[in-house]
Each structure stands twice: as structure tokens, then as C-alpha cells.
Design a protein around this nucleic acid. Structure first.
Lengths: 353, 353
DNA sequence: CATTGCAACTGTATCGTTACAGATTTTAAA
DNA sequence: TTTAAAATCTGTAACGATACAGTTGCAATG
């Protein structure tokens, strides 16, 4: 019993250059591991001074809880999963979305994990995986459908989530959406203001919720502003640019040729422009166009197109805030947001000298 | 001693609807937990038939190892971290990169975590975080510099990584790069073939490695093909499109106006085009242009620009393969790849009816 | 003085996995 | 038959954190 008295079996000296753990702090403060844990959580049964001391030491040595330990014990992963189609829009909606999300997560303990799936196969796949393995505390999905089985499943299983786009199932859940109805409505307004009367809409694929939003806005505006629709349903913004161009060229060559275009996507707009030109018509003269865009490109390269900017980065931020809010137990109806389209001023040509 | 004989204290009946663990399999097979663990790892001290049996059961009940358990015990995270600047190129290089990486990771146990940082601040920040917390098994970085402190640090600390772009420090490490020297060289060739002689280069920022690659190729080609450089160093592809346009408009108005342009980035090209037009000149007549592009847009909207496609998605795949290779201990010199630029055929105008 | 109540702190068990050091059985060698 | 050597299998401890059920000391109560 020389030096081997062990009053406190709890705390062994810290290994050395290793990463600090609760044990390290316990050793340094002379407290028990449990006490340290509770102190850092600001538990009510720990003395104020003790808490202060623990916090100080923790900060000094740069303690950061081991994620694996927490996750194993509590099931909390501190992970938000962004579920994406591998085939997501060419004109990367993904980039700014990821940036927006990480901007918000940077201030939290959450990490962003990107979980892809092949949309042609099973959209429920990644959701099931997350549910089965407890891979994330919250999920963000896009390409939302009116009756989206992913939403049903996550709701049933109480997995917090937020959707980019709305649903129509009577389930109240967090979402962020762009007001596509308003976009289409305002787009038609602009076109009719320019005297255009025969309008065409390049719409989203019919399975996505915002398809009907956009159509509704379009049709309401046609009525309100006295214009007529030119049918163009056989292609949508999910089709290849080539398919869109060819279809549109054909339309522009026909007797039914429209004089105004509303494009539901920036990349679609590019194909439409090519179609117009392939048919020998001229944008801004024979036909005007309004497009929703996720970036500035069209504005730079085709200033004659009227654009409305959809800020995907903001969407990413809103969605991140929404999932986290849901994880923290906030009621879903307080975690819904709709962003309003804003017309961009046409690119000004330089005016120097 | 009625029914309470406990020969095998190891395996308790599985909880119920809970996720299967090694314990579940142990119970079902009547084996010890250790045996099951080793059987699934194909350890040499487990009987062939036993292994088969365990594997069968595991598959049947859909066993998937608990990541937190593995991580806590072994330190293996099964995470690849993609370290990105929040300010990453507007024309999202990020999207296709993420897609490419996930394509490869989908066939593995690895998850992709996106770790952002503010490039204006500390680029080492995220690397330190990963090292300190053991947040990932491997890292992918971009915006590589000739003397990149991140590469030094990760090499010293034996953290597997791959870089998008090369370094010049004598450290052999995995990388994927686009052959920017060749790009610039071939670009100049095309321009001189069209009789252009006064060429300008919109270059990458000088701190990035591919800046010198591109310059080298540019200058070598000038000599080989007998053309001359028009100086344009005060802006680069990291500057805002507005800054580039204004600077270039000024150049185009001056007596030094070039007749050929090599653009190191697709978005830069857009600003250059605007500059040309703002100066009242015409692309394809007064001046020709070759640009590196990450997508089809320019080709669609400005077919008069000659483009070379840099496939970022492929880069993502290569980088993912490279980090994993490194994690598996493959020698770094076998994990380096360079992709060659290929001229794209100009967009064909439709030819129907 | 015994009892109770409260504040402050702590040990044990556990999450799922694997490293390690046995234990048991079978086979082969002597 | 005895013993050594394989071949298989297994329990314990540990990774770091937290839930839970205490323990301790002290002041207030009766």
C-alpha cells in the first residue's frame, strides 16, 4: 500500500498526446467522469463553481466530444443527410444548395452527408437506409412529389426532415419552396405587357409538385391577361436539351408557333433558344421569353431573355434551418417558407468612356 | 437450477424489432459474439462451414455493422471528407464533383461528408479539425497550390488524401488534374490556325498550381506557332464577372486589343464575351475565343466559341478512387491521373425538314 | 439525537464492435 | 497411450459517452 492507494479509481492520467476525453478533464479537475459529463451539459445537480471550472479546463485543452461515443450511447448522429438524385439537373442546383446548407451547419455540431440514389430506381432506398441504420438525425430531400412516399415514410417513422418543394397529402411538414405559381403568373404578365398573346410553357415533369403550381399560375394569368396557351406538353425540363430543342424547333416552324415563352428552368431555356434560332426566328423580335434561372448566365449571354432568379443557396439555408428546427422539436408549421420570385434587371451594358 | 441454466451467457435473445447486431446473429447461430465478428471478417481461425452459416444468417436478417461501434473501437470512420471553399466557383464545379465522388462511394462503405471553409480565412482549419477529431479516413481537397500547407500537414500526419490539382513540393501524393498546359497549348494552336496572332489569356489566380501550367502551355505555344501575348494579368478567373468584363472591355477598346482569347474558365468566358461586345466588337469576326468549360452552356449559347470540356464528374470519380486507394495502402504514385483536354465539336444546328 | 431533505457528486452498466488472451476439441505425432 | 500441435471457438476488456441508481455531507426538522 505504498503509493498505490486508489481513492478515486475513476480518473487515470491522460495517455499523452492523445485527444482529450472526459477522462482527461476528470483527471485534471479531480472530479468524476460523470460529473464532468453533466457539468458540460449544464445539468442542474452540479455546482455552479464546478461547472465553471470544468468548462474552463475543457476549453483550455480543446475538448470536443467523441462523436462515435455519443452516437453509440445516445443514437444521436449529429448528421444531416442530403438525399440527391445522381441525375440532378445539369445546371447544378446541387452546388449552391450544398453551400447554403453548410453555411448553416457550420455554426452547429451537424455534419452534412450527401446520400445519392439513382432516381430511375428506388427513391425510397436511401430513406430506408437512413431509417434502418440510423445514419442521420435529419434529412433533406428534393424533387418532391404531391404524394411523396418518402414523406409518408419519414413522418410515420418520426424521422425529422425538410423538403425542397411542397406536398399535397395533408401531412404538415417543414419545407422550402419557390413560388412557382407566382413566377408563372408574373412571367405571363410581362409577356402580355409586351403584346404577346400566344404563349407556351416549358414545364416541370408532371410527377413533381411544382408542375401543377406552375401550370396553375400560367393558366390563371392567361385568363387574367387575355392570352392563349400553345400546347407543348410532350417535353419538360427533365428531358435532354437536345430533345427540348428539337421539339421546340418543330413547334416554332409550325403554324402554331407561339410568340411568348415561359421557361421553368434555366437550362431548358438554353435549349428553347437554340430551337427558336434553329427555326430561323429571332428572340426578342419574333418571340419573347421569360425564364426562371439559378444563376446569372442567361442574363449575361442572352440579355433579351427576361429572368427571375431562384436563389438555391437561400433554399439550402432555409432547409437546413428547417430540419434542425424539426430535430429540436419545433412544430412543423413554423418551419415552412416560400420564396418570392423577383425579376432581375437586364444586364446593363458598360457605359465607360 | 430449473430453467435458469446459463451455459452461454453470451447471447441474449434479440430485443425485437430492433436493428440486428452481432449479438442477434450470435443468438441465432448459437455462436459467441466474437466468433460471429471474426467469421464475418473471414478470419483464418474460423471454420469454413461456420463462416458460411454466419454469412447466411447475416444476409438473411440484413445485418449491417453499427458504424458508431466500429468507429469507437477501431477509429475507422468510413468517411471521406470533401473540403470545399464556400466561395467555390459560381458555375458550380461542386455539383458534378459531388456526383462523381458519390458514384464511386456508392459501391463502398464510405459516406461523403462535405466540410466547408471560408477560403478568405484559414484553409488549414478544416484539415486540423479532421486531424484533431479523427473525423474522416480520407480527404479530398481542391484549389491546390504549388506549396500547399494542407498537403504538408496531411502527409506529416499520415492522413490519406487526394488533391484536385498538383503540387510542386517534391511530395509524392495522389492527385487528379486536368492537363491545363496542354489545353492552353492547343487553344493557341487553334487560334493561330485561324490566323490570330495577338493573343490574350484569362488565367487562374497566381496562387493556384494550374496557373503556371496554363501560362507555360500558353507561352510555349506562342513561340511554337509564332504569336504574341497581350498582357492581361490584373484580373483572373477568381475575380467577379463584372470586374473581368470591365477590364476586358477596356482592353478591347485600346490599341492593344487582342484578336484571340484563351479563357481558363467557362464563367470567365462569359464575362469576356460581354466585354468584347460592350466594346462594340464581334466574336468570331474581330476576335476568336477558346475556352475551357465544365458544361455545355457556352456551346449552346455561343457556338462561335471553341470549347474544351473539362469533365469534373470524372475528376470526382478519379479523386474518390485515389483516396480510397491511399486508405488501402496503395502507393501514391499509382494514384495519380491527368485528364487530357478534348475539343468539342461545335453544336450542330438542327437539320430537320 | 435521530430523521429527513437536499445539494453535489460518483460508480456501474451499457451502446456495438474488436483486440487479446485464453479454452476446448480434434488430429497428428511419438 | 501420452503428448504436442492444430483447429475452432469464446469471454473479457476497452473504445468514449451517458442513463440510472446510488452515496456523501450537511443543514434543517422534530
Amino acid at each position: 500500500m505504498d503509493g498505490k492507494t486508489k481513492n478515486k479509481p475513476a480518473a487515470t492520467p491522460p495517455p499523452d498526446g492523445a485527444r482529450p476525453t472526459l477522462k482527461t478533464i476528470a483527471f485534471m479537475t479531480g472530479l468524476g467522469i460523470t460529473t464532468v459529463s453533466r457539468a458540460l451539459k449544464d445539468a442542474p445537480d452540479i455546482g455552479a463553481e464546478t461547472k465553471e471550472r470544468v468548462r474552463l479546463v475543457a476549453k483550455q485543452i480543446g475538448y470536443q466530444p467523441n462523436r462515435a461515443g455519443v452516437r453509440l450511447r445516445t443514437g444521436k448522429t449529429n448528421v444531416i443527410s442530403l438525399v440527391l438524385t445522381l441525375e440532378e439537373e445539369i445546371m447544378g442546383i446541387t452546388s449552391p444548395m450544398v453551400v447554403g446548407i453548410t453555411e448553416i451547419l457550420a455554426g452547429t455540431q451537424y455534419h452534412l452527408v450527401v446520400t445519392p440514389y439513382s432516381s430511375t430506381k428506388d427513391p425510397l432506398g436511401p430513406i430506408r437506409y437512413i431509417l434502418d441504420t440510423g445514419a442521420a438525425d435529419g434529412v433533406i430531400i428534393s424533387r418532391t412529389e404531391p404524394h411523396d412516399p418518402r414523406v409518408t415514410l419519414m413522418t410515420e417513422r418520426h424521422l425529422p426532415f425538410a423538403t425542397h418543394g411542397r406536398t399535397e397529402m395533408g401531412i404538415v411538414h417543414p419545407f422550402h419552396d419557390f413560388d412557382n405559381e407566382r413566377f408563372a403568373y408574373e412571367a405571363v404578365r410581362r409577356l402580355t405587357e409586351r403584346g404577346r398573346r400566344r404563349l407556351v410553357l416549358l414545364e416541370p415533369p408532371p410527377n413533381l409538385t411544382f408542375h401543377s403550381h406552375m401550370r396553375t399560375g400560367f393558366e390563371r394569368a392567361l385568363k387574367d391577361f387575355g392570352a392563349e396557351a400553345v400546347s407543348f406538353h410532350h417535353v419538360n425540363i427533365d428531358h435532354s436539351l437536345l430533345a427540348i430543342r428539337d421539339a421546340f424547333e418543330q413547334l416554332m416552324r409550325s403554324v402554331d408557333a407561339p410568340d411568348g415563352i415561359v421557361s421553368g428552368s434555366g437550362s431548358g431555356a438554353i435549349a428553347l433558344i437554340a430551337g427558336v434560332e434553329a427555326a430561323g426566328k429571332k428572340l426578342g423580335e419574333d418571340v419573347d421569353m421569360v425564364s426562371k434561372v439559378p444563376s446569372d448566365f442567361l442574363r449575361w449571354l442572352r440579355p433579351e431573355v427576361m429572368t427571375m432568379y431562384e436563389d438555391i443557396r437561400v433554399a439550402g439555408r432555409e432547409l437546413a434551418r428547417a430540419v434542425i428546427g424539426r430535430i429540436e422539436g419545433k412544430p412543423p408549421e413554423t418551419l415552412q417558407s416560400l420564396s418570392q420570385p423577383e425579376f432581375q434587371r437586364p444586364m446593363s451594358t458598360s457605359r465607360k468612356s
